[in-house]
Amino acid sequence: MVWITIVLVLSISLNIYLYVKRTLHYKQLEYAHLKLQQIVQDKTDEKLLLYTDNTQIQSLLTQINRLVDYNQMIAADYNRIERSMRKMLSNISHDIKTPLTVILGYTEMIANDESLNRQQLKSLLKIVNSKAEEVIELINKFFELAKLESDDKTIDISKVNINEICRKKVLDYYDILSSRDFEVSILIPEENHYALVNEIEMERVLDNLISNAIKYGADGKMLGLELKADKKHVYIVVSDKGKGINEIHKEHVFDRMYTMDDSRNNLYQGSGLGLTITKTLVEKMGGEILLESMPYERTAFTVKLNKFIG
């Protein structure tokens, strides 16, 4: 009889324990559900905090928090892209409106001012043509970037002599640099370095960077171009001694449509497309572009490319 009583008491105790435990787990799960609902509804960056000794619930909470982190990251990226798109539309609208206003003004003058002589007409038409080319250039760059970012444009990669490209670009800009009294520092080794790139796109990258250095480094009156390599990579460094890029802008200078007074991302009528296109092209070729800047001492863009190893 005593044994039966003991077994009965143990059985009842066990059932009570299991009931309490199940109830506790239920409350924990209910809390997690309500808290997660609140996080999603209020779009906060909170996490699920729940102290429990149940390993299954701990594992579940860990995975839920990872999912929350991912969702918050996606939301942040979406908001950033949305802001970028709004700014892009604002910049594009402004940059197109300015030359179009000039075009409309001069065409109205040509149409209504009968006193204009042939030379004056020719001069006005030259301005109209120049402004029309600005609009076309901006539109072309905008759609080019859109194609690059949507993967609609294929860039073929092959073995390319980077020494020859660097020498060619120096010669292309020799007259401009001379006319502006730039000091030129060229460090291209005798040993040929080959990289896996697209030759045409690589020339465009250097065109963008050299033009950028001439335009925004004009105060320093110096252009540097250095080519070097290690066992795995080839490096092209384009530098100047101009006003440089403020520390707070370095992180964003390659962002699409990012413009500011102290930035250099104004290669195309202030649209903020130039350095973005340059970075995108480099990355499409499997490379990387880096920036370092000390105002009026040295501002350098370094293009890091995959070396051809035969």
Rank of each mutant, 00 (worst) to 15 (best):
E108P: 02
R298D: 14
D113P: 05
N161P: 07
I16D: 07
D53M: 11
V303Q: 00
K87V: 08
K126P: 06
E247P: 07
S123C: 09
H193N: 11
I289M: 01
K47R: 06
S130G: 10
Y26F: 15
S123T: 07
N265A: 11
P189D: 15
R83F: 15
Q63F: 13
L196F: 14
G310P: 00
L138Y: 01
N246D: 10
V68I: 15
E108G: 07
Y106L: 06
M85N: 14
S13Q: 13
E191Y: 15
L138P: 00
I6P: 00
G244S: 09
F308A: 10
S115T: 13
L121S: 08
S84V: 03
R298C: 14
S59G: 12
H233F: 10
E251I: 09
N71Q: 12
L196S: 04
Q269R: 10
K122C: 09
L67M: 12
T44K: 05
D172L: 09
L8I: 10
E46Q: 15
S158Y: 08
A132R: 07
S90F: 14
T278A: 06
Y296K: 05
Y296L: 05
R204W: 11
N112Q: 14
E134Y: 07
K126M: 11
M285E: 00
N161Y: 10
L206P: 01
R167A: 12
Y258D: 02
A111C: 04
Y19R: 14
D175R: 07
L281N: 04
L125Q: 14
A195K: 00
Y268H: 07
K97H: 11
L116T: 02
L104S: 09
G217Q: 06
Q63W: 10
G274W: 02
R264S: 08
L206C: 02
V234Q: 03
I277F: 02
M222D: 06
D175A: 12
